[in-house]
Amino acid sequence: MTVPAELGFRMPAEWARHERTWMAWPTEGYTLGDEPDDAYRAWSQVANTIARHEPVTMVVDPAARASAELWLDAAVRQVERPLNDAWMRDIGPTFLVGDGGELAVADWVFNGWGAQEWAQWDKDSKIAEEVAGLAGARRFASRMVNEGGGIHVDGEGTVLITETVQLDPGRNKDWTKEQVERELRDFLGVRKVIWLPRGLTRDYGEFGTRGHVDIVAAFVQPGVVVVHTQPDPAHPDHEVGRENAALLRASTDAKGRHLEVVEIPAPTILAEADGEPVDYSYINHYLGNGFVLLCGFDDPRDQEAAAILGKLLPGRTVELVDARPVFERGGGIHCITQQQPA
């Protein structure tokens, strides 16, 4: 089987110029929850904000057409396809570009974040192929179970992943690290894989992903990584952040550079109303054409995080969107967006 890397395809960094952003509209199940308007408001605020900077295409289940029409700005293009859920980062394709600018996708196997009991994916498992067709991109089907939130690249040959996602028995039973790395090299065009041991504590709860990397660490420049840290020792993510930061500081990228690690403190909120620890994180931001879309939590550290990212990403407008309704449903802004590179 011919793989993308053999033909010169690779996954660009998120800060490379976009053709558009893809999203999926909340349709049913826990993503809608008991307060559907909260989900509609959150997803539409993200889409409508991005649409001021670059084109947005929203995949909408036919049954959800009325709510999408009500909440989305006219600038957001809508296409109808059957959906189970609304996490486009995970159900959608990973876009690749070729040496001559050709567009392709890596279509991972999607099985409901490791075949979790509550998940349904009969429709979502087909969305990557549908989006590839709508985008006019060549499709390469991987045999590995993976989601877009489980990878983060620098565009220069390095990818960040976590052991608890890629080696999850519900995803890739009996796979070795070597097999995972080979698949990522073949499909993303990377040369260096940096393994983090785990994700945030809440991400291992009922509706978690079991450790997606895009909530704990992300490249913002070649050689520069932002990492989630929890200053309060009372929070279970205090040690998680320390461990990840130390590992990243000891790492080099595909070009042999020692990584510069910038810590972004978690919001001051430690627990939700049910007493469970929150996984609120500023790492789960989204980079687009001339902007940074940052998760906001009505927290004193919102502006601190905005200032850090603004300094690291000069020339980009930092836009804050209340991400609490998204996190209550199991993810963040990065989780509901997927970039199509120009």
Rank of each mutant, 00 (worst) to 15 (best):
D37L: 11
A132V: 10
T176L: 02
V190P: 00
R139D: 04
Q45T: 15
T162S: 07
A5F: 07
D299N: 09
S251T: 09
R77N: 12
A104N: 05
V109M: 10
Q339V: 01
A13K: 03
G199M: 06
L320K: 13
G315M: 03
E260W: 04
L188I: 06
R210H: 15
L103S: 08
H212M: 06
V278S: 05
A245P: 00
V56E: 01
L103D: 04
V60R: 11
V145H: 14
V220T: 08
G170S: 06
P26M: 05
G256K: 09
V153N: 02
D38N: 14
P222C: 00
N84M: 04
K255E: 13
A137D: 05
D237I: 00
M144T: 15
G331K: 01
Y282D: 04
T49L: 13
I215G: 13
T252D: 10
T209L: 10
R143W: 14
R52A: 15
W118M: 04
P82I: 03
L259E: 07
P169T: 00
R191M: 07
W108S: 03
G8K: 08
I194K: 03
L7V: 05
T49C: 13
G114N: 07
L160V: 02
G112I: 00
I91K: 02
A64E: 09
H258R: 15
G155W: 05
D253N: 09
D302P: 01
C335M: 06
D174P: 11
I264D: 04
G29H: 11
